[in-house]
Amino acid sequence: MSALGELRRIKGTSAPKSRKQNTAAFLFLLPWFIGLALITVGPMAASFALSFTRYNLLSPPRFIGIENYLRMLQDERLHTALAVTFQYVFISVPLQLGLALALAILLDRGLRGLSLYRSAFYLPSLLGASVAIAILWRQLFGVDGLVNVVLGWFGIEGQGWISNPETALGTLMILNVWTFGAPMVIFLAGLRQIPVMYYEAASVDGANRWQQFRRITLPMLTPIIFFNLILQLIGAFQSFTQAFVVSGGTGGPVDSTLFYTLYLYQQGFANLNMGYASAMAWLLLVIVAALTAINFWASKYWVFYDDQD
């Protein structure tokens, strides 16, 4: 809190409480409102309605009450999918964000060739969803993959990391961490957003580099850290492509990479059970919304906004 207090002190003034600006806000929000009304709400509401139906896409939906929701209680694969997804989210998101933040600070400034390094670290995230990823990953973590070759140099006998139920999810976490370039870019932009005058004022006060980092960089970056956290959280819960391409759409081996959204997709499009898939989607929404709400609540204690009073 002392860092925040200091920033407020540096900032000096505080903005006056403003009146409601409904008209201006409405005009600024108009495109979004139109999109919300025409494109977002209809399909969302439809998917909610479909969650109470049996709907195979080929024939009209048939109302079945809360049967889909009751079925979720019994569905063991769904429970597996939840467990897999929670593990994935809670391990890979912090790892990825930590690495992204560290590299962003390292690559911020003060070194020759930074733009090349940034591009190199960013390139993997560009590969994104391509089929090539699956093949590349098998080349790395397969039975005859590079990882095992390297382990072999040290006399360690490797294994099929990607198709062993114990380690398959781990390789997908590494895959996610590997694409840390995306949050890194946002951190880089955030670092450059910090007004120089704060550093100036701090150095006048005789703060050293570490103190500047602790008292200025970190607190000023918290809104961006917070954004990345929320973004990665929502994104990780909806992770689909990586597991889809690496496991060939099965979520295997032995359902060890059966991400929630992958199972939802299997239900909706392979089993043509779109009613059930919709119910699953709304359960996911409730889970993600609850976690997001908790984060927003917790953010009051650690996120510093420059426009707060």
Binding site: M274, A281, L284, L285, A289
Partner: peptide
Amino acid sequence: MLPIHVIIVP
């Protein structure tokens, strides 16, 4: 927060 797979059909 809704996966695209249930949104895309509507």
